[in-house]
Nucleic acid binder design. Structure first.
Lengths: 344, 344
DNA sequence: GCTTTTCTCCAAAGCGCTTTGGGTTGGCGA
DNA sequence: TCGCCAACCCAAAGCGCTTTGGAGAAAAGC
């Protein structure tokens, strides 16, 4: 059933039927109801392809996921974020177009999207300090929202968590517990959030006049093995750290493994605190855990961020000239069983 | 730049230019080269929206991800699978359309996709024993591929790992090590793969005339907390299992946590073996780990499965009447440090 | 030499929708 | 009575591509 058939069956023009269904005012209410009823009865849905061509709108949002060639790493964060965003898109009638491209092909991918307007906007994830995607998208005139920030966070819209504050607070928490030998197991510091977290860590340490041990500050892709190896090396070197601050629950699990193998008790011999993106399957949530969360953590749901980012991005489409929207989310510091006073 | 402009600039008709670019034989080779050169120079790409309308092909593959309302759980497996599939789609010029819908809305989502042909095919993940999606998609005439199988795995195309065999082998491995008190921490047994794994476990046990303890066979959504709690309960009940067989690395991590908290050494006091989907960030791979994989595991890369599934699915589109393609992948049993002889 | 075929190319008709630019009609004020 | 303005509705022109059904010229066949 297409519009033509429907309109013929109603004895109306395509114009009128189209307008009736799309809520334009030039059609009598009585007619509108009649049209809607007929459409429903005939199980009619406008052909999306035709509509896209006619309107020029893609009714789709692009997420470009760069596949870092060597590591072949899929960021587990993406999944939860996309799930959150996808929910909103679906609700608003937008499609989510996921594009996996090798890292060096991202620019071309965006240009392609802009050139034939196959998406109405794009979501930018995991920005680096000096991310080339921001100026590129500005040049292309494609609405976009950055989840996170770049080093120069002005003139575009973003949503980010207060990383400096979060890690300052987490560090303070460890310092208050008497820890002085604290290791930072950070993400790749080319990524802006990782740099900010390091800053937060350093600020807190400096404020107490504790100088961090350079050998205990690592920066890498946040895998379980990375956390494991880093912790192994530090713990085996003698006089190791008494506390670890990790950028994600994934390396934190590796740290726990390393400690466990050495017979160290978490929260007693060694403390671990991490940032928790609220990954559901990791279940580090207090509510659903009568035994309490495993890890003490700065928490901010990546899923919720995805939802909010989607909302903002869609609003950007309808209103492209509004001033940049910038939202900074605070994290919760949630107590778990992985931290305790520094051993004497 | 659109086709009309390009053809005018060349002094040719749109027909000829279109055919030249799409490799039809009715155009002289010399002309074709001229057209291609001009297209390249003008940075012309055909408008995807117009092409879709004209051809009726969507050049897109649908992945429908049901959001289980209560749990709000995002399956971490999906991410790696999609990454693999997306790679292939991109290479073949297909878009990946990701649709997040509440579980009860999946049927409507598929019907919608079929009704206006917004995708050329769909990928079905995590099938249940008696999955309604299979008959639905058959009715809709939408090409599809199932990753996994249903209880009646005939008449449609699928790719699956040999779950029974894998878990029989894993169980045998534990039995060979002298374990008799073995717990099965399975996924939800409404899912077909979980049922098969249980079967494999039971078969191996029966073959050695070891009767499994019903209290040690669990089935649930595979979170870390699930593994943790199950292990806690079993270990605290006195005379607990000496070995755990887990359906995924995620609950296995929870089991390890439970054991660790109780001062039990993994691979000595308690053995753990799990199925490993090769999630990159979990890094349970031997190659990249000089210290060896943490977990002994039956391994099969979910990413590679995604790639292969995509290839098969695309071939199904071009050739819809071919007999069903069914591929069964064997798993590797890779030795890690989480297993050892049963304690005396 | 004349008809057929083959090779190239083209005009125009879709694909199914939205949207522009009017047309009718009826009611109301002057 | 006439003119004007809403209120409704419509025909037709796109959107940018593919594809059908030729047409013209050159090559081939008899």
């Amino acid at each position: 059933m297409n519009l033509k058939q429907l309109s013929e069956s109603l004895g109306l023009s395509q114009t009128t039927v189209s307008r009736a269904l799309n809520g334009y005012p030039e059609v009598r209410e009585e007619t509108r109801l009649r049209v809607q009823a007929a459409a429903e009865a005939a199980n009619y849905t406008p052909n999306a392809k035709a509509r896209r061509l006619a309107t020029g709108r893609a009714m789709a949002i692009g997420h470009v996921m760069p596949l870092t060639g060597k590591e072949e790493l899929v960021n587990p964060i993406f999944a939860d974020f996309i799930a959150g965003a996808g929910e909103i898109y679906a609700r608003e009638g937008y499609d989510l177009l996921l594009s996996m491209v090798p890292a060096e092909g991202t620019e071309a991918a965006y240009r392609q999207m802009a050139a034939n307007a196959s998406v109405d906007a794009v979501m930018v994830q995991a920005p680096t300090m000096d991310d080339p995607r921001v100026p590129l998208l500005q040049e292309l005139g494609l609405p976009f929202l950055v989840h996170g920030r770049t080093g120069a966070p002005d003139g575009y819209s973003w949503l980010d968590v207060a990383n400096i504050r979060a890690f300052r607070r987490a560090t303070d928490f460890l310092l208050d517990l008497g820890h002085r030998k604290i290791a930072l197991i950070n993400g790749q510091e080319t990524l802006d959030f990782a740099r900010r977290r390091r800053l937060g860590f350093e600020q807190a340490m400096a404020a107490r006049e504790v100088s961090p041990n350079a050998a205990w500050m690592r920066s890498d892709v946040m895998t379980e093995q990375y956390g494991y190896r880093a912790a192994c090396e530090m713990l085996d070197a003698g006089d190791g750290p008494t506390a670890f601050l990790a950028s994600s629950i994934i390396p934190a699990i590796g740290i726990r493994r390393a400690a466990g193998e050495r017979g160290l008790r978490i929260g007693r011999d060694v403390s671990i605190i991490c940032h928790d993106d609220g990954l559901s399957y990791m279940g580090n949530e207090g509510i659903s855990a009568p035994d309490g969360p495993a890890f003490t953590a700065t928490r901010s749901s990546i899923r919720a961020a995805g939802q909010r980012c989607a909302e903002i991005l869609l609003s950007l489409i309808d209103n492209p000239n509004q001033p940049a929207i910038q939202e900074l989310w605070d994290t919760d510091l949630s107590l778990g069983r992985s931290t305790g006073p520094a051993p004497a």
